[in-house]
Design a protein around this nucleic acid. Structure first.
Lengths: 356, 356
DNA sequence: TTGAAAGCGATACCAC
DNA sequence: GTGGTATCGCTTTCAA
């Protein structure tokens, strides 16, 4: 058995209360006694039992709010699953996680939802925000009210959020470029397709991609000018069709946004499947099918589940243990998925007792 | 606040004890009362508080043994880290995890270690075993003694272990082949290098690879006969050197075992870096460097940390909750690593309260 | 068949 | 400064 506070108390000839105060520097304890207690504790290698601590915490009930935007998209649906699992698990420890979903990116509604959750008395807030000055201001205000905010999936850089959990899109773009270089012959042409010109995520993916393409001189790739498809398959289809006709020697297409299906359809119809390599983002039912179908060469996935899953936990840790994040920016892994590793059961890590 | 057993007891007009017995079907409770209790519980959506349950469990102290072989290898060092972190976390919940390390694959020693841990009174055992009849027998005996065994990293199929946590090497080989097909021109030659002819892991990797290469007829790849390098860089170097000379048009090398550095050195010296695509296994300091260096095209990683980390938890769940694994075979994800996504902080999942 | 009470380990509050 | 005591939610005796 592990050593308990009680045992230390007996050895030190004091009560558990005193031991507790001493070890946690809560004051009101004789310095001499304190050092004696500390000595015994370190000798025995005392670590407070987390379960005991956790049980005490259930007294003060803890409420956490989470707001998810764009729930209609496949990726956000996965994020939502993560959020829900975390909520389930935390509920079993007496923590209430209130999830609010909204479709689209309605800032007005987002601010309303935040307000509503604050009134409900949440002690922390996880949001997938728009990156606007208004929201930045809102986050900073929450911080002043001592309501910690965590951003997930998308960030508001420069705000007083305690942290961000999501993917590094610039790095994603770089990774895509690295793969593209490996897959197409030196001296080929590549066409980058993006989504919205104003979308930070898409822009980062594009910039990271272009940087590496230019830097990998050994590949000697010609980068065609990028075009936006506004996340629409029909536009992506048309654009791709046109690009394929205009460039019979096109070797690769980089799809930084949605529209994957449109791109693939155009390639297939042109009879250029497998000849034109396509790197895209986000694993879901559609892209998985396109992989199986040999239309997509590979997909970069952003661990959407993990983003939703971790956000409430990070807040919980912060609120209860006052523990900050290891890093303000928690970047989720960039997974490369191909036909052969995209249907693995993405098993979650096991459920664990919480840590100091 | 979540609903507690106490609340149910009050509403049902009985005591907590009765509620507990009813909800857990421990018997000795009036059927009528039981149904009333069940009704109230489901109405209120009662879920037992896991922390409360866990605290009670700390009474019966729990000991788990873990034996790690081949600790001298980079991969097993990572597995060990996972094992250690799990041990740390579990200790804080009053569970003792005894880790024994041994270098090499000494079956004699392994059996001794198992014996010793059983004498120490472990209630469960996690091992990275040799796949031999002796060990299978040993595992089956442990099972009869009601000491559940979990295999991790390597398995003993057909034994009475409650489960295996590790990678599906066949699938790994398939994934490698898929990547190779994407990277080299149709009609090229590929050379597979393996480790030991008797090593199941290597053989599975090889078989999976060959299967897909043959099946992906669109790629029309010529598979040269494989050769073993006995996990040695010097042999790998020589073999590769020879293969490169004999096949000036060689487009790809598949390294199913250790020897990556030898392969890369030969390629570099032959001035064929980047022209010959190399797919290898296991991310570590060496392979990471070879990736950065453009010698390796990509590395398939097996989430070694996770394997070590999960093994004790799976046992813990089994011992305390009598909860079996979701599946007898828990396959860890196959991660594709390239120059650009190989140095991400591999952040672990957060530490969680345990789940029902 | 049931209830009352004693823990599990840590914390918080209130007397002294 | 210090010790005693209640408490968190659940399980598990032991009496009744």
């Amino acid at each position: 058995m592990a050593v308990t506070a009680q045992q230390i108390a007996e050895l030190a000839g004091v009560s558990r209360g005193t031991v507790d105060r001493a070890l946690h520097n809560r004051g009101r304890v004789n310095p001499e006694v304190a050092t004696r207690i500390f000595r015994i504790a370190t000798e025995l290698g005392y670590k407070p039992n987390l379960i005991g601590q956790a049980l005490v915490r259930t007294k003060r009930d803890c409420k956490i709010g989470a707001i998810l935007q764009s729930v209609e998209t496949p990726t956000m649906k996965i994020v939502l699953e993560g959020l829900r699992q975390a909520a389930d698990e935390l509920r079993a420890s007496g923590v209430e996680v209130i999830i609010r979903e909204q479709s689209g990116l309605d800032e007005e509604l987002l601010l309303e939802n935040i307000e509503a959750l604050v009134i409900e008395g949440v002690q922390g807030l996880a949001i997938s925000p728009n990156n606007t000055p208004e929201l930045r201001q809102c986050i900073d205000q929450l911080d002043e009210q001592n309501i910690p905010v965590v951003t997930f999936n998308s960030d508001v850089p420069g705000s007083k959020r305690i942290g961000f959990i999501g993917v590094n899109n610039y790095r994603g773009g770089q990774t895509a470029a690295g793969l593209m270089c490996q897959m197409i012959p030196a001296g080929s042409k590549v066409f980058p397709l993006t989504g919205h010109l104003s979308n930070t995520a898409h822009n980062n993916r594009l910039n990271g991609f272009c940087e590496v393409i230019e830097q990998e001189t050994a590949c000697n790739i010609t980068l065609l000018p990028f075009q936006p498809c506004f996340d629409r398959d029909d536009y992506a289809y048309e654009i791709t069709q046109h690009m394929l006709r205009a460039n019979p020697d096109l070797a690769g297409i980089y799809v930084a946004a949605n529209g994957q299906q449109g791109v693939c359809q155009a390639i297939e119809e042109a009879g250029r499947k497998r000849q034109v390599k396509v790197v895209a983002f986000d694993l879901n039912e559609i892209t998985r099918k396109l992989l199986q179908n040999d239309c997509l060469s590979c997909v970069l996935d952003q661990k959407a589940f993990e983003q939703g899953y971790r956000a409430p936990y990070v807040l919980y840790e912060y609120i209860t243990h006052k523990k900050s994040l290891q890093s303000e920016l928690i970047y989720t892994d960039i997974a490369i998925r191909t036909k052969y590793n995209s249907d693995l059961e993405i098993t979650m890590m096991p459920e664990l007792p919480q840590k100091e």
